Simulated assay, not measured.
Amino acid sequence: MSRRQARCVALQTLFQLDLNSILNKENAIDGVLGLTKVLKERDFLYMHNLVDGTIDNKAYIDSKIGAVSGDWHLDRMPAVDRNILRIAVYELEFGSADLTPKIIINEAVELAKQFGTDDSSRFINGVLGSIVRK
């Protein structure tokens, strides 16, 4: 497993929490991990960092996204796109120094290609590019 798989699990967990307010974080993680291969310890910790950090900084992250997304308010975005953006902005703002903006954007675009719509990858790339330029 890798950071990419950790991001996939984080995305699926945040997606569930976004759409199901009665679900708690640990049950969401357990549900996703039950459908995937087991993460290595380092990737499991990274996934938890992404989930916890994104949840803890959600208001700040959402304000960063909202500032560049124009008419696409967060509540109008597809839930997958919204949560991919949240993870990527968390990594851009609070992630480790070994992750460059180019890597973070590329990983977000790859998640969008895997889980989003045909337009998701372009949308994600545009929003994150705008955030990086600001």
Score class of each variant (00 low, 15 high):
G126N: 11
R86T: 04
I61M: 07
I84H: 00
L39C: 06
R76P: 04
N20T: 11
L11I: 03
L35C: 11
I55F: 12
D71C: 15
S121W: 01
Q114S: 14
S96H: 14
R76Y: 15
K37H: 12
V9D: 06
N24H: 13
G31R: 08
T117Q: 13
Y60C: 15
V80T: 09
Q12E: 12
R4Y: 14
V51K: 00
G34V: 03
V38G: 12
L74V: 10
E91Q: 14
T13F: 03
L23F: 06
K134T: 14
R82A: 11
D75I: 10
S130C: 09
F123C: 07
E107C: 08
V9E: 05
K102I: 07
I131S: 01
Q5L: 10
P78A: 10
K102G: 09
S2P: 01
K102T: 09
K64L: 09
L17K: 03
N24T: 10
A59R: 15
V127N: 06
Q114C: 10
G116K: 01
G66P: 02
F115Q: 02
V9C: 12
V32S: 00
V127E: 06
M1T: 14
Y60R: 15
N20M: 13
D81L: 07
K102S: 12
V132R: 02
S120F: 03
N125I: 05
L85M: 08
